[in-house]
Structures are given as structure tokens and as C-alpha cells.
Design a protein around this nucleic acid. Structure first.
Lengths: 224, 224
DNA sequence: CTATAAAATATTGAATACAAAATACAACAG
DNA sequence: CTGTTGTATTTTGTATTCAATATTTTATAG
């Protein structure tokens, strides 16, 4: 245990990563109450540093805090999900605009490369790879744009993590052409054009989420 | 003291507001180290609840944390300032799009009303009022849009507080037409159009800040 | 059997304590 | 006078403690 901890600069980062992972890996399920003493014991620390980290994760909206009742793993409602996509739409809009303005040829080549091995009628195994390529594409876009605050908002509100939850993605056959179109606009350095395309792209995905939720959940957010 | 505390649901909110105020009122100056024991004593609590709140303010970027060295009041660089405007641009872009889609006639009337008593060549006294009207306009926009995530990001990054610091605003004569144009687009329910206008509007303000900073500060962020 | 009240248990809130680390400062060498 | 080392002091990091509050369980009445 000592060794594990010492690989990080401090306990905080260690705990932060551990808990964040536990949430994403659903070891801590949405809605679960976090029993401080217990989680602290599991992680081999006392409540003091744990609370510090929980406070941080609360700010990031991964966890919810109710005074005198404690910390709970956050449960996302459909509305919050849609809001995430609305913000994502604009964030990527700004990012892609910047990218179209300033991307170098090799960066454009790189973006194109991400999708090079896929086409509209790919086999099932490739589809899983495609999902990763999709994530890769969007996050590279943000990296190339290199607008720190966008990265911060993304990180801080976990926009991507929430966006790419399993079962929420559209079928590759639908999105592959959209991606190509966006890259084309970038290549032409048509920044407004790229911006409009990516905003449409994400808006469609958002509507898709809407549909999925309505199939799976009741109005009050409970599972059907 | 008991009374003061009991007016809030809990110590957290009390400490949170106190410290935030101390920062805004410059009782804690940018760059200052926060000596936990001392601040805790000043506020009449122990370090435990204080740290919880400092952690939250660190997430909000009002305070900075360096492991093993402590918490410091955050010092804003020009770059961060510009980024705040970029984010603001994004957020208000989302908001105004939403508003153009769904604002009622009376809400549009209200937005127009905010600027009704001003015109391009107003006298000096009116200019001060105009600054308030400006703030009012932008914050009503966000309220009408009613997207919780935007309000949260705003709150979290203290976008408005940073944006409306004295000495950073453009002259009313420049902005009044821009505001009118945006309201026109909203009235026409041209959501994309409104979005593009407001993003331009804020971009110009952002460039303006840039100019002001370059006049006042050296490259390393110190005062000229 | 259901609803309510009381008691027992679990959990959080916050102060305190102490070890580890950082900082400030004095003594000394060059 | 400048830089370096060692020591004292301050401050942070974390565990522990205990009171206040919330939750669960048990007991009792209807």
C-alpha cells in the first residue's frame, strides 16, 4: 500500500483517482450513499483526507452532498444529460472553429487518420473500435484547439465521460459521414462551416440520448 | 457568533460566504498565503471545516492549492482573464440560442426595456447606470435560458464577477447597438443569428480587455 | 397487520493532537 | 558580503475523538 501511495505526489491525487474510477467503473453506483468510515477503511486512510477529496468531486458533480446526511454518488437525470450535450455542442463548436483556423496539415492528416480504417458498412468487431475512434476524434479536436478553459470545463464537469457512457452512442453508419464532412471543412479552413456541422452532429446525438432515455426511464428518472 | 452561524444551514455555507467575500473585498489579497490556523481562528472555527471550504473554493478557482505548501489566494493572469471571456462567449452563446427559441413576447419586451432609457450619446451620469443595465441584460439572458449547467459553470468559474471588474468595460456608445441587434434577432426567433451576434459581441469585449491589460501589465503579469 | 413511538445503532460534524514537512533564521565558511 | 548548513519555529497532513444528528430496529397501541 505504501508503494502505491508514494507513486503519487500525495494522498489527495491517489484518493481522487481511486474514487473517480470507482464511480466510472460503477463500483460505486449512482444513488449510493458513501459511508465515509467504510470507504476510508477500504482505501486505507482516515476520513479527513477522504472528505477533502469528496468535496472536490462534489464540485465536479460526480458526487452530491446533502448537509448532515452525507455524500451520495450522483444520479443523472435526463435533463442534466441534455444540458451536458447543449454545452458540449457549443464547446466543440468553438474548438472546431479554432482548429479550422489554425490546424496544420499534419494535424489534419492525423484527424483523418483516426477514421481511416472504417467505412459505412463495417463489421461488428470494428464497431467497438470505432467508438474509441469517435472519442479520440473529439478529444483530439479539443486538444488541437488548445483553449485551456474548454479543457477545464470538460474536465471539471466531466462532459466527455458523461457523453460516452455505454449504450448512448449512435450507430457508426450514421456518424461516419458526419465526421468526414467536419474534417473536410477543417481542411478547407472553413471555420464557420465546420462549426455549424459539428454543432449539428452533436445536436443529433443529443436528440438520440433523449430518445433512449424516454425508452428506458420513467418521467421521475427511475428505471422502467 | 452562535447566532451568525445559525442563520445559515450549516457552518460550511457560512464559511464559504465569509471567505469568498474576503477575497472579493480584497481582505485576502491575490497571492496571499492562507494560514489555516489563523484564518480558522479569525472565523472562530477549527481547521477541519475550513479546509473543506478551501477545497471547494479551490475547485472554483478563487484559491489555489499547492501540496505541502498550502492554499493561496489566486492571482489572475491575462491569459486566464481572456479564457474567462472565451468561456463566457460560449455560455452566452448557448443561452441566447435557447432564449431566441423560447422567449415569450413579454420576456423580449423586458429585455428591450432594460436599455430603453439609453441612446448612443448619453451623458456621463447615465453611463454608470448603463453599466448596470449591461450586467442586468446578460444575467437576465441566462436566467431566461434556464439551463442549470450554464448557471453552475457561471457560478463556479465566477465568470461574471471577473468580467465586470471596474475599468474593464467598453464604452456604452460602442455596445448599445450590439445589444439592440441581439434583441432584434431574439425577437425574430433567429437563434443561430442571435448566437453569432452575441459571440461577436463578447469577443470584441474580450479583445478590449486584452488591450487594457497590455497597457497596464508586463508580460509576466506584474503591474507596469 | 399497520402505524407510531422509543430505544439502540450508525454516521456525520468539528475540535484536538501530533508527526512530517516546509520555512525562517542564525551561525559559520569562504 | 554572499552563500551554505544546521537548528528552531511554523504550518501542513492525517488520525483520533466525541458530541450532535440521522437512521434503523424494536416495542407497543390501535
Amino acid at each position: 500500500m505504501e508503494n502505491v501511495i508514494n507513486n503519487f505526489e500525495n494522498l489527495n491525487t491517489y484518493l481522487y483517482k481511486q474514487i473517480k474510477d470507482m464511480v466510472w467503473e460503477k463500483k460505486l453506483m449512482p444513488g449510493d450513499k458513501i459511508i465515509q468510515e467504510q470507504l476510508a477503511a477500504d482505501l486505507g486512510v482516515s476520513r479527513t483526507p477522504l472528505i477533502k477529496v469528496l468535496e472536490r468531486l462534489t464540485s465536479e458533480r460526480l458526487i452530491e452532498y446533502i448537509p448532515r446526511r452525507g455524500y451520495f454518488v450522483k444520479r443523472l437525470t435526463l435533463e442534466e444529460m441534455i444540458e451536458i450535450f447543449k454545452v458540449r455542442e457549443v464547446l466543440e463548436g468553438v474548438a472546431v472553429k479554432e482548429v479550422a483556423d489554425k490546424a496544420t496539415d499534419s494535424q489534419i492528416e492525423e484527424l483523418r487518420g483516426i477514421f481511416s480504417k472504417f467505412d459505412t458498412d463495417m463489421c461488428v468487431e470494428l464497431k467497438n473500435e470505432y467508438i474509441e475512434a469517435d472519442q479520440e476524434f473529439h478529444s483530439r479536436l479539443i486538444e488541437i484547439a488548445d483553449i485551456q478553459l474548454i479543457e477545464d470545463i470538460n474536465e471539471m464537469f466531466n462532459i466527455y465521460r458523461f457523453s460516452y457512457q455505454k449504450g448512448l452512442m449512435r450507430d457508426p453508419s450514421e456518424t461516419i459521414d458526419e465526421h468526414q464532412g467536419i474534417i473536410d471543412k477543417i481542411e478547407e479552413h472553413d471555420s464557420r462551416g465546420a462549426q455549424l456541422l459539428i454543432m449539428d452532429h452533436i445536436e443529433i446525438s443529443s436528440n438520440n440520448i433523449n430518445k433512449i432515455f424516454q425508452e428506458k426511464y420513467n418521467q421521475d428518472g427511475t428505471l422502467k
